[in-house]
Design a protein around this nucleic acid. Sequence first.
DNA 1: CCAATTGTGTACCGATCGGTATTGAACGCG
DNA 2: CGCGTTCAATACCGATCGGTACACAATTGG
Lengths: 203, 203
Amino acid sequence: MPTGRPREFDVDERLDRALDVFWRQGYEGTALSDLTAAMGINRPSLYAAYGNKEALFRKVLDRYAEGPAGYVRDAVAEPTARAVAAAILHGAIDVVTGGPGGCLFVQGALVTGRQNETARREIEERRRFSERMLADRFERARDEGDLPPDTDTAALARYVWSVSYGLSVQAAGGASREDLRRVADTALNALPGGAPADPPPDA
Amino acid sequence: MPTGRPREFDVDERLDRALDVFWRQGYEGTALSDLTAAMGINRPSLYAAYGNKEALFRKVLDRYAEGPAGYVRDAVAEPTARAVAAAILHGAIDVVTGGPGGCLFVQGALVTGRQNETARREIEERRRFSERMLADRFERARDEGDLPPDTDTAALARYVWSVSYGLSVQAAGGASREDLRRVADTALNALPGGAPADPPPDA
DNA sequence: CCAATTGTGTACCGATCGGTATTGAACGCG
DNA sequence: CGCGTTCAATACCGATCGGTACACAATTGG
């Protein structure tokens, strides 16, 4: 129970509005005036509650990772490597076609001017984290015999993420969920074991 | 032979320097001061020679399409659908790992603030053009019997571009040429006809 | 050599950028 | 009530944004 005047807005709720703006316009494309307008608070309130623009962006990235990008956490819990890959691609499609368009970890900042390199590196770090998570999961699958022993698990993980990132780019260009579903189905054909519609060759 | 004082720099050569900056920093991340510094000319000279920032960016996109992205034009001339796809992915890898990092048509602007939407749409149009070009090529391949009659050529083209865009994102994160080659090889496994290392099933 | 034309360099424009100082209002506590 | 504390709102900060006015240098045509 802190003393003093109580805050007149919900920090988490307004953070979601900030996420929406960063997601739609990227880090560099978003001005503080955009944020304050969308969040319905004044500039000093924003600085008091979240720090500066960079700190707010970091909080937004965390929220995005736990919320819209939470499907990654769930995906690696799938029982088979193929199911994991499918869950990642299908989860990505839901996110990139459901929200403002694309994945924040891709749209947010691929490149930046000199000043905003911190934000770019921050976002890059999140991508790397997800990539490592998937590579570890595939390595486990190989150890369990779920993937062939000679599988290049790192390359396979990179492949799945490449497709996923590509889906995000296409979503930014207006591709529909159905379009992307067909892409994902095609992509899954490349996994060891072949197409999922046909039963595995040893069945 | 125009009268008046002759220009002291080569327009095309300096345009390449502008390309380098936009490529590395994106449209929004690039300030006019970055451009004039890299191009070695003053601001009024830039405006006299290229128009404004948007017009310069458009010229840069054209130059990129003819230069670094010229591999797409060559790729669709390959004899088979598989060779076309392989040429696109391998060509993309050379570009995204050779230049400043990534593909300008991806890095340049996936999202923007309100003011720079024109540049975003411009770049989006270029992507769409390449996508249609590949889809048309795959359609021809299907008509020629090079692809199965039930092939969803549009989806296949979107798949190849998805992987390619993903390679660009990964290159921005520091992936090496060898890393991306393995991704491309995996991706090509998804094409009708299976893996290229093994001879086709009817051989 | 003179006039017309065009590029170069400096210095500047209003607008907007991210970030803050300051004032006054709203609370808990004594 | 008074007091310390915290938030809200206005108004402002220097820096930088994209873009340009203006004076001067360099060239061609007469």
